[in-house]
Nucleic acid binder design. Sequence first.
DNA 1: TGCCAGGCCCTCTTTAGGGCCTT
Length: 207
Amino acid sequence: MRQRIAVIDFETSGITPGRDCRATEIGVAMVEDGRVVDRFQSLMNAGVWVPPMIEQLTGISNAMLKSAPPAHRVMRDAAAFVGETPLAAHNASFDRKFWDYELARLGLARRQDFACTLLLSRRLLPQAPDHKLGTLTRWAGLPAAGRAHRALADAEMAANLLSHLEGTLQRQFQLADIDHALLCKLQKVTAAKVKPYLRELQAKLVV
DNA sequence: TGCCAGGCCCTCTTTAGGGCCTT
């Protein structure tokens, strides 16, 4: 895919954004032509407490966040880095709500859609043992990008997965011009109907 | 008072329930 896509990943202090639950780290992997061509990463201090279970999961401690730059400054920089670039994430419904919440605190609003590598892999890689980002990375033989559950490493793994999914579409359905809009359309087609949909699309392009 | 996600997918479904996935 020649088009640039910004693949983002948040580490957070919990599941639902709000007063007590905020982003603690953001990673952005800018992918183009199947390669990561640019990166953004920063811890951010939003003044929230990270529970021990999440400290252990991510390796991001409360002590690390004390010296991190403030969340509003990091998010402003991240928003400038992404600009109008189309977005993607693994389980995008999760990252989208934190992206929207953190931007809203700055008086900013998202204008582009999110493609979701979880929804796409459920449709295009049904034979995978499960659809966790780490499992898919190992199963597809994609490069490990660093410590799992850190924002940039996970963003790069999701970027690699996105390129792998694109390759699957090209090989199995001879679709050459895959863009972000097609991915967003594809993830809305139900899993059961995605293959007939792609064959129909392929036939239209061949004729 | 106490508790607190939510969207997607599958099936022993659709007047529902449980598992997956993210931190």
